[in-house]
Design a protein around this nucleic acid. Structure first.
Lengths: 349, 349
DNA sequence: CGCGGGCTTTACATCGCTGTAAAGCCCGCG
DNA sequence: CGCGGGCTTTACAGCGATGTAAAGCCCGCG
């Protein structure tokens, strides 16, 4: 049984409250008392009990990060950065994979956040984020991704539409004529996919191209296998494209694999652009041109916003000052690499 | 404020203990009482407070998973599988990145596990695992990786030496003569690297080859960039190898990138084998021959072993029955792909 | 009708910690 | 010497849940 305040108090010959005061940095503690208590703490190796603190009504120092799948490199990188950002505030991050399943997203919500968690950073996929708020109206939440829902949460996201347009424009400017898109998704929840599609459309129209529905390939999920399959379908159905904008890097890498398997040159025959700038794309063959969102910025901002909400005691009252929830856009840029420029051009950089 | 037992009790017209009994499935509760309580629970949306349960001395239902870096695909995949395995037991997994830094590994140990965590699955990198046990002797722990330390913990690992030997043998059997290794590491903590190196050596000697120290390239970390740099050094220094065994897939992918950049054909000029079988290697160009450990098995076994320890009340007494800690080896196999067989051979499969 | 005994239900203390309120202490000033 | 007031320290309650022990209740049997 680990030592508690009581043990420390006995050892130092003071009351438990005094020990508590020392632990929490209360100002009016006599210097010698403080020293004695700290000595006892060190000797016994006392550590505050998180559960008790939490129960008492305070903070647990644990925030949750809910995201669809750690196996996607982008989410892994994002998680990694959020953990780092949280570390600076001495927060521990509880990572939970929702698998994109709505039931799991909801369950997670109810079970943990309610009591154990000070706040939540949530990267929803399947779930209309609104559902989550119903369960736990009091837990501060930051949503990553497009603002699909106007509830009480801050949002941090890249401008998907603009970014997708930039990527598509890059292909246009390279003189590509038949530019395909991989990653279209239906349904009210696939907001990111739809905005990337909208950006793709907008850029094409801006360049005076018509949007050919045959060049828009759906993808059930955003993994390599989906990209590979979608690319296969594009190649099988009529005239092949000479460029593809994939809605994330994994789709792009899968697509490239199919292209090379079938004897197409990348970017000679087909140029490929991805989205996310995962590390893999910097080492793949060819290296992958991609849209690089400021993921570090997303992580930092998400943690900062959460910290602000936690600092505000709580809104509480009723209808008085309705809290304003911010929507923050982070930067993005297109990073040209071999999959659109070819080897020499990319190396020259 | 979320409802507690008290609220449910009032609503159902019973005592809080009865509600508690219903929640915990205590047998001797009258059917109608049970129904009434369950009704109240449903109406109020009651959820047990994890912190209070934990405080009371019970379990929190949270286990920690400590690993070096989520950005490495292997760890991400491992984490993902452990989360899934834990889910079946209704456990929540708190993932913490140690970054391989010993101080962080130790800090994590003290701060959380002591109170909030029922058990720990630990994949140590920098830290001699023994240090961790000093802090928290009571928390059940399962270590992933080679048994570097004979303390109170179960171990689950692949047989690194045998697996590395198999990989090297695969290259020998393809007729390669100058087989290099990338990923050597010094120091008492780099146990995996050393065992993989030992397996490499053993296989070469078994095939009557001499081990050329010039063909053994160290790597500070196991990322793509390290593999790329190490490959560069191998190529720069004298006669290039005609095969490379890399101690993980990321090193291998980095090495391949360097080879292709410099105009070497893979596997034509140099065959490459990795270790881990991350998904990326199934889609890279060329696809990557690799050692595939039974990662799903590792995840499942780790959770099972932890569960067993948690079921045993506690060892407690003293010197009586010294608990036996198991060391479990999971399967592995070499998966030949294009980076050693070339395209046609791989496709034929 | 009384009583033992099983089935249900309940009161209470307790886990570790912290907010509140108040008690002790010490000082200087009138 | 007495008292106000600031600095330190303390007692106590209570966060939510559960183990313990005991109290009710109802039954059948003698």
């Amino acid at each position: 049984m680990p030592p508690g305040l009581k043990d420390v108090a006995k050892r130092a010959g003071v009351s438990i409250k005094t020990v508590s005061n020392v632990v929490n940095g209360y100002a009016h503690v006599a210097a010698d008392t403080r020293a004695r208590v700290q000595g006892a703490i060190a000797e016994l190796g006392y550590r505050p009990n998180v559960a008790a603190r939490q129960l008492r009504g305070g903070r647990s120092g644990v925030i949750a990060l809910a995201l669809p799948d750690l196996r996607s490199a982008y989410f892994a990188e994002l998680a990694s950065m959020i953990v780092q950002a949280a570390e600076k505030r001495h927060w521990t991050v509880l990572i939970d994979q929702t698998g994109g399943r709505a039931d799991r997203e909801r369950d997670l919500a109810g079970r943990l956040r309610r009591h154990l968690i000070d706040g939540l950073i949530f990267s929803p996929l399947a779930m209309a984020a609104g559902e989550i708020a119903v369960d736990v109206p009091d837990t501060p939440m930051v949503l990553l991704g497009e603002r699909v829902w106007h509830g009480p949460a801050d949002h941090v996201a890249v401008d998907n539409t603009a970014a997708a347009a930039d990527a598509t424009r890059h292909l246009c400017e390279l003189g590509r004529r038949r530019i395909a898109a991989i990653g279209a998704q239906d349904g009210p929840v696939a907001v990111s996919a739809q905005q990337r599609l909208a950006g793709y459309r907008a850029a094409l129209e801006q360049h005076g191209r018509t949007v050919d529905p045959a060049l828009i390939a759906p993808a059930a999920e955003f993994h390599r296998a989906d990209g590979a399959a979608a690319m296969g379908r594009l190649l099988d159905s009529g005239e092949p494209p000479d460029a593809v904008f994939c809605f994330n890097d994994l789709l792009a890498l899968g697509a490239i694999r199919t292209l090379l398997d079938r004897g197409y040159a990348v970017p000679g025959d087909v140029a490929v652009v991805g989205f996310d700038d995962i590390e893999e794309g910097r080492f793949s063959t060819p290296t992958l041109t991609t849209v690089s969102p400021d993921t570090a910025g997303i992580a930092r901002l998400a943690v900062e916003l959460l910290a602000e909400r936690l600092d505000q005691p709580l809104t509480g009252d009723g209808a008085a000052a309705e809290p304003s929830f911010r929507e923050i856009r982070v930067e993005h840029r297109v990073v040209p690499r071999e999959s659109t420029l070819g080897r020499l051009a990319a190396r020259r950089r």
